[in-house]
Design a protein around this nucleic acid. Structure first.
Lengths: 219, 219
DNA sequence: CAATCATTCAATGAAATTATTGAATATATC
DNA sequence: GATATATTCAATAATTTCATTGAATGATTG
């Protein structure tokens, strides 16, 4: 083996992947695509940025192997290249959680005591689902629910929660979830439900993590 | 909760971590620190770059929570902030392995058939160690061996291998390891040993992964 | 205290990244 | 074929990142 070491070339490829994850909007795109495949204009709307800008980000993400695209009529639908992309984003979040004081400050300031809403693990939720005494509430927008959701989950988007409280069984415990660990919707939902006297808790993670753990996903 | 959503602030922090991983030399620094804590001038020598440049990279890595520094006399010793840093780098490598054709091309071109050297898993090596019929060879430079190594491993740096062949028991199987999955030293060592008639295989991963899996590390 | 070694800092110029804007391209519809 | 919609491309300016260089700082040694 006399060819030059591949080390540098490989590390340049690894660096390409990492730097492509190094922009907040691209991370939001991954979070969105974690809920299911989406078109460019839908992604632009979700992330709140101009379509041309989002398309540019998606091109760089495609080159870096983070997403794949396929044409469906006049739409181009993007999806995460594979499960390793979400895993990489979660690994990065772990580093930030463990080692960045600023993350701790943001989380304390907004989410309050992380444990104050008694986050429930997906293992614990699986157990609770078997005894049938818990209502699983998906508080994402209905288009994200349609892409995939926990089996038996009820879709009550956060902005409809107040109007639909009467449809919820007050005798059952409620577990609410949304897009992921740092999505605020389920925090908001659990707070509001508790004010109204419901026994509500928050699933620690989102739908993508549930799916990545091998659990069933309904649609 | 009426304060603005922390989402953007959090994703900016996550992006900071990712972009700090987005330079090949910083990834090499992580690989080196994965072998153990090191001073700036030692890291500069290992990575083959000017000290001022490496110091600059280390500052940005410290700000991003990837490394921690402590003064020991006139030396500043850097170490990985915690195990999540190595895990994040591995997650990024996974994405690249899975999804980048260029990585596949580099790996095929240099490493040949990945399976041609019969990589052995650390679980399998643990089993083999118990029956005592295998020589574990650490082919890293001796300073890295000193920082931590597999229990019972023999340190034969790659550049000394030819000179020390007579010290190896030809009746025992040999398992060689080095810094990690993409370190070429153990490939080289296994190739040379096989040419000389030894039954040699390569450990799939390096010392840091062995340690991260909870296995004992000797020093 | 001066000299040496190790490290960091600040300034600089080059390269890379990013958002914006308008044009170009592809598909669907009438 | 014209129009509308969806998406990408190319050019541009601003911002950020990176390597280099020499000065500054801190610890050790004589």
């Amino acid at each position: 083996m006399s060819s030059p070491s591949p080390k540098l070339a490989l590390f340049e490829q690894f660096a390409l992947v990492a730097k492509t994850l190094g922009h907040p909007q691209r991370l939001e795109l991954i979070e969105q695509l974690g809920q299911g495949p989406r078109s460019v204009d839908m992604l632009a709307e979700k992330v709140g940025a101009p379509i041309a800008n989002i398309s540019q980000h998606l091109q760089s993400m495609r080159r870096a192997g983070l997403v794949a695209a396929e044409r469906q009529g006049k739409y181009v639908v993007y999806r995460l290249a594979d499960a390793s992309v979400l895993a990489a984003m979660q690994a990065i979040q772990r580093v930030a959680e463990n080692n960045l004081a600023e993350v701790d400050r943001i989380v304390r300031g907004y989410f309050g005591q992380r444990d104050s809403l008694e986050p429930i693990t997906r293992e614990e939720l699986s157990d609770r689902l078997r005894d049938g005494m818990v209502t699983v509430l998906d508080v994402r927008p209905s288009d994200e629910f349609a892409l995939g959701h926990l089996p038996g989950a009820l879709n009550v988007p956060l902005d409809e929660l107040d109007a639909r409280l009467s449809t919820l069984d007050p005798d059952k415990d409620i577990v609410a979830y949304c897009r992921g660990a740092y999505c605020v919707m389920s925090f908001e939902a659990v707070s509001r439900l508790r004010v109204r006297g419901f026994r509500a808790r928050r699933l620690e993670e989102g739908m993508p993590e549930w799916a990545a753990a091998g659990n069933a996903v309904a649609s």
